[in-house]
Design a protein around this nucleic acid. Structure first.
Lengths: 217, 217
DNA sequence: GAAAGAAATTAAGCATACTTAAACCTTAAT
DNA sequence: ATTAAGGTTTAAGTATGCTTAATTTCTTTC
């Protein structure tokens, strides 16, 4: 399954956002390809002015590269909204579908789709949708793992990459905007126990890392 | 711009429908590529069982190939309906957009889209939409060029390939379901003059060939 | 500050959908 | 029936996004 140059830019942007640092091997793992493939594409994208690259030292998106990345993210998220809101998809099934559609839709189509959907601000996983000019309003959120016992928090965002995580959240009743309190925290394995709607739930580290919240008190 | 194997199947199906006969060079021209490229892909598709091929003699779709072709056409036409009906596209702008989307949507997505659109029977150009089982109800239509003076006919289908043709039709007020009569026929250049809604219009051969009608008396 | 280990890059090669140029059938005309 | 013309296929080579293997560079450790 061949990836497009655009896809690299998008993933660089996202890894930078979520992990903080982008490396050749990190990107390779995220994209399910090998490091040399990444290295190769990085230098191509450097030539075309989308990336600033210093071999062996690191790379980052240029303004141009970031614009392309954000435009693709915009397409992805708007399609996700359409799939969930209009076609009735479950939130854990839309990622892959949107991944394909984003590459097959013109800017004009997306403009029309955005209007059709009444200019949604967030995608089904709580991620903000960049506007036509590439402006994106980032929420201030922290992963569940950073909460302390007694904290009360509200779910604002969930990572959309893993179907299993999303499926599990749905199963136990966790959705966006759910408010919960931290009952227990086990530093040993970084898991947390939370309470919401009169039930207690264990979140493993893997799960907790994918849930982003805003403390509400 | 690389074409997928599926696209060949679709184009074979369509050329067979509209022209009657499919040749290597004919397909190449339709697809905007060279004959060797077609020849090459034909033998690959023969190996995979989508096409029955006798070198130098001709080729045709197998049942399997036809199913794939029809499924792609189904996707194309449903997307066209969506673009026109929901997003407000003009009918002469949807072909290229649908051409891309059709390759990026799963069968499941199309099933949901079809329901969302309330199971439309025709696309914006009057082409029938195959159902999930690949069943397609072909209209009995004839090109305008086959009409005689005095005939009254109704527009049932227009070719969607040419933006210019569709744009022109819109400009002069011709749409699907418009009823008209043939005022004059010039056998010399195969053009016809028609009358509808109290105006007279000349249709060149090129135009007339792309308008399919049903005689109504 | 030298050596070992880790990470990144370069090299060589593969698959695929193309291209142009050459070779090959088929057919139609005399 | 032979040949010329035309369409079809094969051959050779290109671009692109990958792979594994080899090499280079960086970083960490002592």
């Amino acid at each position: 399954m061949n990836t497009s140059p655009e896809d690299y830019l998008k993933n660089i942007y996202i890894v930078k956002e979520t992990v903080g640092k982008v490396t050749t091997s990190g990107l390779a793992e995220k994209m399910g390809i090998t490091a040399p493939a990444v290295s190769d594409m990085i230098s191509k994208l450097a030539k075309s002015g989308h990336i600033k690259n210093i071999p062996y030292k690191g790379f980052e998106l240029t303004k141009k590269g970031e614009e392309t990345a954000i435009n693709l993210i915009r397409k992805h998220r708007l399609w996700e909204v359409f799939l969930v809101q209009e076609l009735g998809y479950e939130w854990n099934k839309v990622h892959d579908e949107a991944e394909k559609l984003e590459h097959s839709s013109s800017d004009e189509l997306i403009t029309k789709l955005e209007e059709y959907l009444s200019f949604p601000e967030y995608d089904p996983h709580g991620h903000p949708i960049p506007d036509k000019q590439g402006k994106i309003i980032k929420q201030k959120v922290i992963p569940c793992t950073e909460l302390e016992v007694g904290d009360i928090a509200e779910i604002r965002e969930v990572s959309d990459a893993s179907q299993e995580v999303l499926g599990y959240l749905t199963k136990v009743g966790l959705r966006l905007n759910v408010k919960f309190s931290v009952v227990e925290k086990i530093n040993f394995d970084n898991s947390v126990q939370i309470e919401f709607e009169n039930q207690k739930i264990f979140l493993s580290e893997k799960l907790a890392k994918n849930i982003y919240v805003r403390k509400s008190s």
